[in-house]
Nucleic acid binder design. Structure first.
Length: 548
RNA sequence: GACUCAUUGGUCAAGUGGUCAAGACGCCACCCUCUCACGGUGGAAUCAGGGGUUCGACUCCCCUAUGGGUUACCA
């Protein structure tokens, strides 16, 4: 069999050799020995969800912690799935969450010496490698039509054997050069298939950085490496690109575990070393009481847009992701509350190999702590930016009241036991919305033990004694007095001792005042809020409540 | 169906043959307290089931169950 001739017939235009690419175009990188080279290789569907971000984080940490390279390669080998503007979306969403690429596709084009970074532009490289395989009898053209393949599959399942293109089912595996030529002359379309030497019984061993030592079945399928249109399949592109781009660690979802044998065999056939594989567990979602993998189609709410829309601060999402990424992160954070994430030593060994359920409660809790470390000025800025993109109707009002907003956000945030009220923009705005007359409303109920008439009476008394210049304790002393004069215990403890002697206690009275001023039964310190609102607004709110 | 990965409280999880089975979120109670938060103290709650191996199993082996994944000229 003249494989050389076959390869020339199939790839007449390919003159380069693999060694040309290996030695001259993409030489071994000049990095520290421990430096890791990782890549994010999304397909340009334009949709990134939390799971993608989770994986990207692993790549990023690995590379940047070792002074290596983190690159973006776009796997656009399936033209059916291309979406306009997807690449920009990918880059900007990752950047929003603090992930920056050192190399590869970027907004301006591409940077780095190992490109092109769009797989669709690497055709010649793949063909060169494919040609080499044909030349060595390890790849061949296959002219089978989809219908023929479908038929084989049917037969195979009837016979209860594994489906696929292998062994005696691989019809075109041993076509002669003449037969190939005849098909070609007939203008038939063809794919290039890899000729596997594996068996169904064979196994091999490989170490996965997350899953440990694996013993797995060999590949025995003659899988397609070049499609009819000359574009490679993922399997082939992965091997060629990650080798030539000198990637050291391949981080990908566990759905790739089952195709690892294919990749392994191609690597070995080409005489190349495999990268270190890191198969991550999927992020799961609770669905009707059952855990389920996060899905692009079913869970749009878990797209990154979800967090952006609600206005979660990117560092809160990062922080949350890190806690599920590395099990020792939380403890490290407790021990090092002010340390930069870069100081945490991320390790693959500490990664879980079972799927974690997304936990919104936890995110919210983390977010509170994260926002507490950010100044009120910055949060205000963040809120403003968010409103411009997601809630334009409040931008104006925020802009007009910047100083007040900053003060509102600051209430109770200082001292040993700062408040942790803020979680995400939508919630933050809602939290301070009472300040703005156009958003103020009575959302809660007055205390049950105080009827409407009583409310008015108390508020009148409050208004009469109100002095905007009172300090906090003077102010509250007055409320205690009003309480006493109206049959409410000035101290809650007195009420607890003899509840029958009072209508209620000072807490009820201050609740009435709070309701009139902020429209809610609970809020941060009312005196401080009044100082921010100013006397006019305070008085008018109370008057309104009285006249209601 | 075949092949494969996984399985510790509601959730995230530590744990690598001998622990009263950490910690965090959530939940509950109490304390602090003018409300709510914050903070503090305490509490309920877990090794999927069954067989082995062993003096001893959450830890090792087998089976079952459940869940995930793959089974394309998608990635």
């Amino acid at each position: 069999m003249d494989y050389k001739k076959l390869s020339e017939i199939l790839f007449p235009n390919i003159k380069e050799s693999i060694s040309y690419y290996e030695n001259e175009v993409f030489p071994v990188r000049n990095l520290k020995p421990e430096a890791k080279v990782t890549r994010l290789a999304p397909s340009p569907t334009g949709f990134i969800h939390l799971g993608n971000l989770y994986g990207a984080f692993v790549d990023e940490r690995l590379a940047h912690q070792s002074e290596g390279v983190f690159m973006l390669r776009i796997e656009d080998t399936d033209d059916k799935r291309k979406v306009e503007g997807a690449v920009e979306t990918i880059i900007s969403s990752l950047e929003y969450f603090g992930l920056k690429f050192d190399e590869g596709v970027c907004i301006e084009g591409e940077i780095g010496n190992y490109g092109p970074y769009f797989q669709s532009n690497r055709g010649k490289i793949y063909q060169c490698v494919a040609k080499y395989l044909v030349e060595n009898g390890r790849a061949y053209p296959c002219f089978c039509t989809e219908e023929e393949l479908e038929e084989t599959r049917k037969k195979q399942s009837e016979e209860n054997v594994n489906t696929g293109y292998y062994g005696k089912w691989a019809k075109d595996r041993n076509l002669t050069v003449e037969e190939v030529q005849a098909h070609l002359d007939n203008n038939e379309e063809f794919v290039i298939r890899f000729k596997s030497y594996g068996t169904e019984e064979g196994t091999f061993e490989i170490d996965d950085a997350i899953r440990g030592h694996l013993v797995i079945h060999e590949n025995y399928q003659d899988i397609v490496i070049l499609k009819t249109n000359g574009i490679p399949t993922y399997h082939f592109a992965h091997v060629v690109d990650d080798h030539l781009m000198r990637v050291t660690h391949v981080v990908r979802g566990e759905e790739w575990l089952s195709t690892l044998p294919i990749h392994y065999e191609i690597f070995k056939t080409l005489g190349w070393n495999t990268p270190i594989y890191c198969h991550t567990a999927h992020l799961m979602k609770m669905d009707n009481g059952a855990k389920r993998k996060l899905s692009k189609r079913k869970d749009p709410e878990l797209g990154l847009g979800f967090y952006m829309d609600l206005g979660y601060h990117p560092s809160a999402v990062r922080e949350y992701l890190l806690t599920i990424l590395n099990s020792n992160y939380e403890e490290w954070r407790i021990a090092n509350p002010d340390s930069l994430i870069d100081n945490f030593e991320f390790t693959l060994e500490k990664m879980s190999n079972s799927g974690a359920l997304f936990d919104l409660d936890k995110l919210n809790n983390i977010s509170k702590d994260v926002l507490l470390k950010i100044s009120a000025e910055e949060i205000c800025e963040f809120l403003l930016n968010w409103s411009e993109g997601h809630k334009t109707e409040i931008t104006q009002v925020l802009n007009d009241n910047k100083d007040a907003v900053i003060k509102l956000l600051s209430v109770g945030r200082n001292g040993d036991k700062p408040r942790k009220d803020l979680m995400y923009c939508e919630q933050i705005f809602e939290f301070i919305s009472y300040f703005f007359d156009e958003y103020f409303s009575i959302v809660d109920k007055y205390p049950e033990n105080v009827n409407d008439e009583e409310v008015k009476k108390l508020l009148k008394a409050y208004l009469n004694t109100y002095d905007h210049n009172d300090d906090q304790s003077q102010w509250f002393d007055k409320i205690r007095v009003i309480s006493g004069e109206n049959g409410y215990a000035a101290k809650p403890k007195d009420y607890k001792k003899n509840p029958e002697m009072y209508k209620g206690h000072v807490g009820d009275v201050s609740s009435v005042i709070r309701m009139a001023i902020v429209g809610r039964a609970s809020s941060p310190d009312v005196w401080e809020l009044q100082q921010i609102m100013g006397e006019t607004k305070v008085r008018s709110r109370i008057e309104k409540a009285i006249n209601n």
